[in-house]
Structure formats: structure tokens, C-alpha cells
Design a protein around this nucleic acid. Structure first.
Lengths: 185, 185
DNA sequence: CCTCGCATGTAACGGGTTACATGATTTA
DNA sequence: TAAATCATGTAACCCGTTACATGCGAGG
């Protein structure tokens, strides 16, 4: 029941795009999958090294004029196979995402109603910002013709974010109303 | 920027309900907030101990006939205050939940379309089950008149789960269609 | 001269899961 | 007699975040 090392597959997948360096991968992630998968350099660099050790990628040191040296990674055939096998593997469990707002609401009997309403409102604002970010990402994907082959799948993942965000936004409205009604009584 | 120890507040909150022992808390969580907050004994017991050390709860050893000994916890006044302060504190960030399905879809250009469709279908089934679980929880909440004061808030958190799940279910339908259309071409 | 962008890396720390250990009683 | 329920607890391990360290070059 070993926990899967997803980072490995993220890196492998990213190496199938134009990304070649740890730095570029990080940037790419921030602009594409960051709404459902964040990653830090603390994970990227050690794991890239590991990929090479496992024969799933190769490195090449490149010195650039006027810029710091890079390590350019490339996925190997074995790496591609490992990626494809993982893609086929069915997802075992849908993990439950922890939600601090819901946790607070769950115990909100110990709080004034308007205080709970405030919490939801601030959540709402943040979600609205998030929705805007999604629109930004969508623009990037639709503009960048380099990745036309990938675009469709990327847009599907984006759609997920947009739909769920909208649903939660509606929930915010409804819940605020419920709470206000209650405090009127 | 210290990471908050949410477990502490979960336990504090649970101690405001009928739960008195670590075992009972675990059960309660599994039946109520498990859809947005899971917890294991490995967290519960050490943290209960810590609550007592910090004066947020008290313990009492109880021996029962025919049953193992228990440690009955009770929240203190300080504990209640700490809980209430935390409830008021606005949520800093909405964390991004990691989603394995989206990760796979994002890289699905390296996979046959029907394989991606299979992934979504299996996700769909799991979500359907989850929706059923939510209905089960709803029944428990609506039946159990012990917790009438809490019920409203509990139902609000449930509603969140139901709405988002339905939205994702719709997304599944739409995405499958998109993929099928694509493979027809 | 300072900051930003490019670029790589590590160590400490903290949270959480899993597996293991124990043990009584009831029920099938 | 085996399994399930009640009940508590720990240690190993993994994953990930944060903070820190380094260093060059361009532009303001």
C-alpha cells in the first residue's frame, strides 16, 4: 500500500512538454496545473535527480552565455513507458480534500451567525479571484499554439476547476441566506 | 507562518459534542466531517494528550465493567475560548486540493482517448457512491435529535459536498462526450 | 547599487498515514 | 474458536513546505 510518488509522474509528464529544466518545470506548473497540483523546488530538484538515477531521464549540463548554467533533462524511452503505464492505471481512491471553512462552519454553533457569514463572504471573494485566474490560464492555453496537441486535455482540466468553483460560489450564496434567515428569528 | 495545527481544533470542536473518548471522536468524525476532514488514531491520541497539557481539556480515567478502560476528556473554559477565537479567525488561503484524475487527464495526449474515458467513468462511479454516502450522513443528522442545535451547520457543510459532487458529475458527462467526439474524428 | 529574473540546491521541520502492539468481551 | 467491537497507544516512514544559501547579469 505504498504511497505513490506522484511528483515523479508530474516531472515525467512535464518533460514531455517543452520544459527541460527544473526551473522551467516549476514555472510551467504554476501556469497550468497549479489549480489542482502545486509543487515546490524542494521536491523538484531531488526528484529530477532520482529520475536520472532510475534511468527515466537523462541530464546534460549546459553553460549559457550571460546566464547561469542549466541542467537540461530529457525523458527516456523507459520514462515514457513508465508515464504511460501510470496514465492507464485506474485511480484507487478519491482523496478527501481538507476544507478549513467547512470545519469552522461545522462548529459554528459556538459562534455568532454574522461571524460565520463573514467567513463565507471572504471565501467567496477568494473563489472569485480564483475563477479569474482560471480565465487567465484559459487564455494562455488558447493563445499558445505550441501545445495544440495538449490543449484539449488542458481545457478539460480547467473546465473542472471552473465548474466546481461556480458550484461553490452558488453554495456560498445559498448558505449566507440560510444563516441570515436564521439570525432574523 | 507556522502551519496551523488543525487537529487541535477538530478535537476541541468534537469535545463540544457528546464525544468523550478518542475512540468516540474517531467514530463521530467518520460519520460526520469525514467528507472534508479525515483523521487517524495516530493523530488523535497524541493530540488529546497535548490538549490536556495545554489546559484546554481534562482527562478522567474510567473503568467499565465488561469493557476496557476509557479516558474521558472534557473541554475546559480555556479550551472553549481557544475554539471560539479560531472560529472567528478568517481563513488565510484556500488550499489547492491535489487531483490525480486531472493530473492524468492533463497528460492524456500520451494515452488512447478511450483509456482516458475509462478513467473518467471510474471516477464517476466513485463520485456516485460518494453522493450516496452524503445522503446517508444527511439521514443521520436529520434523525438524531440530540444535536438539533448543530444540525443546521452540519447540513450546510453537507450541502457543499453534494453540490460540488453534482457539478463534477456533470463535468464527467461533458468531458466524456468531448473525448468521444475527438476519437471519432 | 539594488532588485529582478534565471538557476540550482539542501536542511530542518512538521504533519499525517500505516503498521504494529495490546487486551478484554461478546457474538456467530 | 474466530472475529468483531471497544479501547489506547507508539514508531517508522513519507511527503511536502519553508527557509536558507549561492551566484550571475541586466536594467532601472
Amino acid at each position: 500500500m505504498a504511497k505513490e510518488n506522484y511528483t515523479k509522474y508530474v516531472l515525467l509528464g512535464m518533460l514531455t512538454t517543452k520544459c527541460r529544466t527544473g526551473y522551467a518545470i516549476k514555472q510551467m506548473i504554476d501556469q497550468s496545473i497549479s489549480h489542482f497540483w502545486k509543487i515546490s523546488y524542494g521536491q523538484i530538484y531531488p526528484n529530477l535527480k532520482r529520475l536520472v538515477e532510475e534511468g527515466l531521464a537523462t541530464v546534460e549540463d549546459t553553460s549559457q552565455e550571460g546566464l547561469p548554467d542549466k541542467k537540461e533533462y530529457q525523458i527516456t524511452e523507459t520514462g515514457k513507458q513508465v508515464l504511460q503505464e501510470w496514465l492507464k492505471e485506474p485511480i484507487s481512491i478519491i482523496p478527501t480534500e481538507k476544507n478549513e471553512l467547512l470545519l469552522k462552519l461545522f462548529f459554528s454553533r459556538h459562534q455568532a451567525s454574522d461571524s460565520a457569514v463573514k467567513q463565507i463572504r471572504s471565501y467567496q471573494e477568494k473563489l472569485q479571484e480564483r475563477l479569474n485566474t482560471y480565465l487567465g490560464i484559459e487564455k494562455i492555453i488558447r493563445t499558445d499554439q505550441d501545445d495544440a496537441e495538449d490543449a484539449m486535455f488542458w481545457l478539460i482540466t480547467l473546465d473542472y476547476g471552473q465548474r466546481t468553483t461556480k458550484a461553490i460560489l452558488e453554495w456560498c450564496e445559498v448558505s449566507i441566506e440560510k444563516l441570515l434567515k436564521k439570525s432574523e428569528e
